[in-house]
């Protein structure tokens, strides 16, 4: 039994070990190859890294829950863009402009509500039709992206509110606003998944759906809640990011779903559901951002970065498989 606890610890610690390896590698490689003078492990650099992790990170946290539940959500990128448009555009509405700075929380509310509603639509369809979440959210991804383009054509939607920018750029205890949102969401969701009945049932459903149904767990409502949650998180991610940037392109958020899934899988969550952890996903998000920044630091261009991340993802999952084998006693496949 002790062995199993240890194996479990190794499993959950693997992503953090990987992060340490990355840090060491880029620090040393940076000494020789760096295009700038600053060290890679610079404190400000690391803070910035956390902040830059936030948009995809917050979405990836939601994706973890969806995937533990045995589903997948491909529509988060489009939800992200649509929520961003609602956030920025709503502040230009005449009645909102009369409210002064009170328009800000209201705009946030609108954006977050948008996310929840979009998530609820996907969730309801998955629940009521029984169609696989992959197909349903593939459809809603296309549909929501269509709505994004209908809103303003190919034009970007912009509105810069300086109070908002100040808030988004603020640092509290050294950490940026976006980082606080990421960490806060991670802690709340971790509590949700480990401490609540909803969270534990989500694991059970993803692990063995028939068993859950036989035990009287109502699978559909759990799906709906989780899709609403990921919609909310996608919108929250948009709120955090666009409060600062103030302009959204209709193509923004594309491929975010895939980056989020990459982070979740790197963090060790099973694609088939039933196993995974919010904290490990946080590790996955940071690991990816470290790779991007680190490769940039030693002078690689974006194309190379994506190639390397892709290769590392496959390598890591292969390694994971090898480590989990039981040696010669295992069945061959």
């Amino acid at each position: 039994m002790k062995n199993e606890t240890r194996a479990n610890l190794i499993k959950q610690g693997a992503i953090w070990a990987f992060i340490l390896v990355e840090l060491a590698f880029f620090s040393i490689a940076g000494e020789f190859l760096s295009v700038t003078e600053t060290a890679f492990m610079d404190f400000d650099n690391m803070l910035l890294l956390l902040k830059q992790s936030a948009p995809i990170g917050i979405i990836a946290l939601g994706m973890t829950i969806i995937m533990i539940n045995g589903n997948i959500d491909l529509s988060v990128g489009a939800t992200f863009a649509l929520a961003a448009i609602v956030l920025l555009d709503s502040m230009t509405w005449p009645f909102m402009q009369t409210l002064g700075n009170w328009a800000i929380p209201l705009a946030w509310l609108f954006a977050l509500a948008t996310g929840v509603v979009l998530g609820a639509i996907s969730g309801l369809i998955v629940w009521k039709t029984g169609v696989d979440a992959f197909i349903v959210t593939l459809g809603s991804m296309l549909g929501y992206r269509g709505l994004v383009f209908m809103y303003n054509g190919e034009q970007p939607t912009s509105h810069l509110n300086w109070t908002l920018v100040d808030f988004a750029e603020a640092q509290f205890l050294g950490l940026h606003t976006a980082t606080w949102f990421l960490l806060g969401a991670a802690i709340l969701l971790w509590l949700l998944m480990t401490r609540t009945v909803h969270g534990r049932n989500a694991y059970a459903i993803g692990n063995n759906r028939d068993a859950a149904v036989n035990a009287g767990i109502r699978v559909g409502p759990h799906f709906l809640w989780n899709f609403m949650l990921i919609g909310f998180l996608a919108a929250l991610s948009a709120v955090v990011f666009y409060s600062e940037s103030g302009s959204v392109n209709p193509n923004d958020g594309m491929l975010y779903e895939l980056w989020a899934i990459t982070a979740v899988v790197l963090g060790g969550t099973k694609l088939s559901g039933g196993y995974g952890s919010i904290i490990s996903t946080l590790g996955g998000v940071i690991a990816i951002q470290l790779l991007r920044k680190g490769l940039g630091h030693i002078g690689a261009d974006t194309e190379t970065v994506n190639l390397v991340i892709g290769l590392i993802l496959i390598a890591v999952l292969f390694l994971d498989r090898q480590l989990n084998r039981k040696g010669k006693e295992e069945l061959r496949t």
């Binding site: 059970a204 063995n208 035990a215 009287g216 767990i217």
Partner: peptide, 18 residues
Amino acid sequence: LSLADELTVAENIFLGEL
């Protein structure tokens, strides 16, 4: 067997009525 094998014994026994 209709058990969720990633969960603990206790969670499985009280599945659906934690």
